[in-house]
Design a protein around this nucleic acid. Structure first.
Lengths: 244, 244
DNA sequence: CTGCAACCCTGCCCCAGGGGAAGGGTCAAG
DNA sequence: CTTGACCCTTCCCCTGGGGCAGGGTTGCAG
């Protein structure tokens, strides 16, 4: 009959772990020798190996304890469930690994490939890196918050930018960043953008506003904070559009 | 600027989680509005998504915090390490899954296929199920405790049982279980076993005794506990062998 | 304007699955 | 007879949050 330390070394767990399993009723307390030391037999070691196999599979100790008093039927059923959970966890870890790779590659999380392509187009069309980064942030948020509507919203935006005249307006918006807040070109640009927006969305609700609820507002606030010219431009455009 | 609840829903975490990240320095505390509510911007959301990607990969929060102040070089290096750890974890989970399958199949943990085959042979040779189970326990322990020596030890034992005359002795041992402790056949059997053992291992140390250290003793104690006849048989054999 | 639901705040204790330390007893070898 | 390696119990610590109490705020409906 061996001591707790030997048993622990055999099975490859700590002494503490064994004592915890006793305390939680996973492994019955064995008899003690005359000096009060726990003494274990082979069946304890076998039990402990079973417990560790389940624990390594992520089964909570309480469930392992309950399984001790289960019928063979129930036990097999439980094993199947645990196996399925394990499979799911493996898939989950692989998905996380994929996200990790994208984080490493710079575009920090799951954006559909077409969005990445679009962002590269922006750079080619000579939008500033600042603008491209803001757009990336925006799409990440939109896809995180409204994965269902994000694709449609994105397609609308990509279409808009495919039109050279409309693209010009966005480029001007981009470059307005460094103007003085009271530059008259801002008033002109606001008028032109409001006009184009009304033209493009003859109905009164452009998809950006209703679809992604307040995420664009969130982005817009951040955007505005980086340039007083942009802030004024935003205010002017809203005023134009509100005036029907 | 959005509230904590909105941010939480966007990113798919609980409010509590965000507050914990603030408390642990993972995510800087944002400014408060007039009523003391935290108000977040888009960059907070992007940061939070990054944090969650790492946390989902199992990176401890303290390490994520430290990574916030790392150079790009260090960050990429860390990502590679995390990726490797993830790969290891996936492999580990698959190994656990394999052990789980064997547990489900009855032979409760990793026994080499040849040991399983051997145990089936025992049943065919008409050893009792009780004996086969004891042998299974023994080999599980031996392979768990001394994987390096277990194979050689096992081959020795398998060889021994391949000899019909020696096998006869083990069968007699098995069936002695139900004899009275003072049955004279036990004395006879003990003598024959001691003789055969000496014959087989002309040197004085049979591999069982030195190789697997005290595991056989562990098994033997358990074995003896189940039958006073076995207990006496064991004592007699030891006495015979000790007398050179 | 008043209610009331849905938010938000802080501070506190709880969980698993142990780790580690304190403070003490036991055993075997030299 | 000491020394080192064991063992015993009890206690607090850690992570990654969950949940509750007890309070303040906001916005919308009646």
């Amino acid at each position: 009959m061996i001591t707790i330390g030997r048993l622990a070394r055999y099975v490859g767990v700590s002494i503490k772990t064994i004592r915890v399993y006793h305390a939680k009723g996973l492994l019955p307390e064995p008899d003690r020798d005359t000096s009060g030391y726990r003494r274990y037999g082979a069946d304890d070691a076998v039990d402990l190996i079973k417990i560790r196999t389940l624990a390594d599979a992520g089964v909570p100790l309480a469930r392992i304890r309950d399984l001790r008093s289960a019928t063979d039927e129930e036990f097999q059923q439980a094993l199947r469930e645990i196996d399925d959970e394990l499979t799911d966890r493996i898939h989950g870890l692989r998905a996380t690994q994929g996200r990790l790779h994208r984080l490493a590659a710079g575009h920090l999380t799951l954006l559909p490939a077409e969005v990445d392509a679009h962002l590269e187009n922006l750079a080619r069309w000579e939008f500033t890196p600042r603008w491209v980064d803001l757009q990336r942030d925006l799409w990440i948020l939109v896809f995180a918050a409204h994965p269902d509507r994000a694709t449609a919203l994105f397609h609308d935006q990509a279409e808009t930018l495919a039109d050279p005249a409309l693209r010009r307006l966005f480029l001007d918006y981009d470059h307005a960043h460094d103007l003085d807040a009271d530059d008259p070109r801002i008033d002109d640009l606001a008028r032109r953008i409001a006009e184009a927006t009304r033209e493009r969305y003859e109905s009164d609700d452009p998809p950006e506003l209703d679809a992604a609820s307040d995420i664009p507002a969130l982005i817009q606030d951040t955007v505005n904070a980086s340039s007083s010219a942009w802030q004024r431009l935003d205010t002017l455009i809203r005023a134009h559009l509100a005036r029907r």
